[in-house]
Amino acid sequence: MSRPEPILAVDGLAVGYGVVPIVRDVALAVGRGEAVALLGANGAGKSTLLKAISGLLKPSAGRIRLAGKDIQGLAAETLVGRGLSHVAEGRRIFRKESVADNIQLGMYRLGLGRAEMARRRDEAFTLFPALREKAPAAAGTLSGGQQQMLAIAQALVRRPSVLMLDEPSLGLAPILVDEVFRVLGDIRAQGVSVLLVEQVVEQTLGFVDFAYVLANGRIAAAGTPAELGRTDVVRQAYLGRAPADLEGAA
């Protein structure tokens, strides 16, 4: 199965905090309109990798291209204007501001008129009806699921060409996880390319077109969900070894 032409391409990327590299020699691509997953255990370097792509961290080596243009070393706030949006881990919204203001702040870079901002905000409210009711409330008072929806809405109103999400289902009840994936489906249907870091492996593999498995800062495996499903590589990446072995060990 051939993959579409990449809109986001990462090559030979190394990044870390201080002198210790956390991610080394990573190459990955997200095709136009594709949904791609990045899987791996805690501490494998997934969040660090996303931060390097979105410009929060400066890579020490490697190349990142967005729609064919080099973007490594550009500031995060600049990349937002180029169509790359990163919904960070841990529901990173502005807790003291109102829900409506949070959504408006998502459009800060775009220099839109009042009317256009209101139109896009209404669109977001249509996608997330719960947020409409809470529009004047401080974002910090929302439930966990609503906060996650708000964080996604903040990115969506920018109409990004590539959307990166870092564990949007983190700490959410299963019914809310379903909701997150329903929204992600809508987003993909609009033609947005998605790079998804997730822990809920089965559901993620059921959603994406392609997946990478990161282990110890390197790509350990890559393939379509069907290809990965035939091996035990994913389970190993999360649990260290197969549960069948655990019974013997304990």
């Binding site: 289902s169 822990q199 809920v200 492996v201 089965e202 559901q203 549960p243 019974e247 304990a250």
Partner: peptide, 16 residues
């Protein structure tokens, strides 16, 4: 440890 890791629920919680 033996009981817990054999539980299907736990494996699910980890791998989703």
């Amino acid at each position: 440890a033996e009981e817990v890791f054999r539980s299907a629920e736990v494996v699910k919680a980890y791998t989703g």
